[in-house]
Structure formats: structure tokens, C-alpha cells
């Protein structure tokens, strides 16, 4: 029974890790690509860490809570790094699949002059 639960958790975790990286490789623009690793991969690694926690807790050497540290750390830092990456991408004005709102379009030239040295970085 325990082995079934462990195997299911491990397979689920590896599958989500794989799907997250597949999204990173296959999606169209940076803002959609950001979703794969920051959500799917975090869930996958969390699932693997829970599997490891159960595995080492049931070997008769007492509770094993090291993994909780890694899980907590990953779950706290993943949104922060995703936010910073999105900020950097917006700053560099990367190509986006979404339609740009008209007000942002109107204010784009001034901002481009202020932020970026050349007009080639504005790819809209």
C-alpha cells in the first residue's frame, strides 16, 4: 500500500516536472513560457519531496522533515523569481502574444526613449 502511494507520488512529480519543462520548450512567447517552470515544475518538485519525506519517515528512523525545508524554500522563492523575470521581460519590451492596450501603445515611444537606447528593442 505504502509502495503504491510512493510510486504514484514519484510518477506524478516526475510527470509534472516534465510537463513544466515541455511548456518551457514549446510555448510561443516569454510570458506564456513563464507559466511552465514556475507552476508545473514547482508542483512536480513538491510532490517528489513529499514522496521522499514519506519514504524516509517510514524506514523506522523517526520523522524526516529535512525535505520540508526545501519544499518551503522552493514554494516561497518560485513566485519571487517569476515576478522578477516578468519585470525584466517587460523592461526589455519582449514580444508578446497578447494585444497591447491602446494607452500603453500611446505611451510606448516616450518610454522607449527613456529606457532603451535604440528603437530596435521595441518589437510591437
Amino acid at each position: 500500500m505504502l509502495e503504491v502511494i510512493l510510486s504514484a507520488l514519484i510518477l506524478l512529480g516526475a510527470l509534472f516536472t516534465f510537463i513544466g519543462s515541455l511548456g518551457l520548450a514549446r510555448l510561443e512567447d516569454f510570458y506564456t513560457r513563464l507559466h511552465g517552470p514556475t507552476k508545473a515544475t514547482t508542483l512536480g518538485v513538491g510532490s517528489l519531496l513529499i514522496a521522499s519525506m514519506v519514504y524516509f519517515s517510514t524506514r523506522g528512523e523517526g520523522l524526516s522533515l529535512h525535505e520540508l525545508l526545501v519544499t518551503l524554500f522552493l514554494f516561497i522563492t518560485a513566485p519571487v523569481s517569476a515576478h522578477l523575470l516578468a519585470k525584466a521581460a517587460l523592461h526589455l519590451r519582449l514580444r508578446s502574444l497578447a494585444v497591447v492596450p491602446p494607452r500603453a501603445e500611446a505611451s510606448a515611444p516616450q518610454q522607449a526613449n527613456r529606457d532603451a537606447p535604440s528603437d530596435e528593442t521595441v518589437q510591437r
Binding site: 513544466g20 519543462s21 518551457l24 516569454f30 513560457r33 513563464l34 511552465g36 517552470p37 515544475t41 523569481s81 523575470l85 525584466a88 521581460a89 526589455l92 519582449l94
Partner: peptide
């Protein structure tokens, strides 16, 4: 560059 940083993060 952000794509590459995201790849390193992954």
C-alpha cells in the same frame, strides 16, 4: 536573455 535566465532557473 530572460528566456535563458528562465531556462537556468528551471
Amino acid at each position: 536573455q530572460p528566456d535563458r535566465i528562465l531556462a537556468l532557473d528551471t
